[in-house]
Amino acid sequence: MRRWPIALLLLICLGAAAFWWLTRPRPLAADAIAGLQGDAEAGALVFAAGGCASCHTAPGAEGSADDATAGTAAAEDSPIVQSGPVLAGGQAFATEFGTFYAPNISSDPEAGIGDWTDIQIVNAVTRGVSPEGQHYYPAFPYAVYGHADLEDIVDLVAYLRTLPAAQTEVPPHDVGFPFSLRRGLGLWKRAFIPTDWVVAGDLSPQAARGRYLAEALAHCGECHTPRNAAGGLVTAEWLGGAENPDGPGRIPNITPGGLDWSEADIAEYLTSGFTPEYDTAGGQMAEVIENLSALPQEDRDALAAYLKAVPPVAPD
């Protein structure tokens, strides 16, 4: 009789230890980016492909993508100093788990991330781990950015450092128990972050480039793929369309099973926003196109080739 409580206690301790081990934040090795030299001009394109400005500019701020390319060689020869989007944060994302506020990631050392080291920013972007060693909520698509080449992320960091500072204080996330316990996110990461490309197999070099852009930067799947009850992406229905968290209607199925546009149609849509009927993109997609239109034409062609290589999901 007396043994039971001890056994139970032992079990609980073991469970707690296992939980602690499984949920531990896993940043990159301290020397992971040693030797990499950030190129801000290349980083501007990573920034555009990653769609950072769509969430991290202040609510209602305009012209993010225009500004994002202001410093690229394609735009003009002017140096990228203190021009470009102001990443003051503050946009609210109301979800069933609570309301998330996009943080200030401007170069301000107090309110933003100006005093973070390169590896701290790289860990935030690719591993979802804060400088204090806490998990970030996956509203921040680090699950996607973790597949990017570290060289690209180091370039991105170099670009972020050129952007203006903003002293805006953003409210903390308004997330209730139990989601307020960030430690548990370690399990979410283990369960739901794909370890490899979702669209596996041999792709043409062009489609593979598109896969890199879509699955490591542009995070198309975050909206276009359905989620399970725990908020993990259902990769078996990759890009097969999903509920619209912002309102009525559905986010469309963009696999060959749901979208019969030609590659040229898709590339044109991602460039100018025109559908094959010459209607225009709306909602969040208009912002996505603003970002993607800053990329070289080959990259939008690559995204189109990738979408044709995605396994078809049957229409609803």
Partner: peptide, 30 residues
Amino acid sequence: HRAARLCAPLFAAAVTAAVTTSALIGTAGP
């Protein structure tokens, strides 16, 4: 009670989720 407290983060983990921005494509004709 203590077990429940220790397990709470597990439950939290099981259901914590991402929600993202959304996209809405207007594809309607004139």
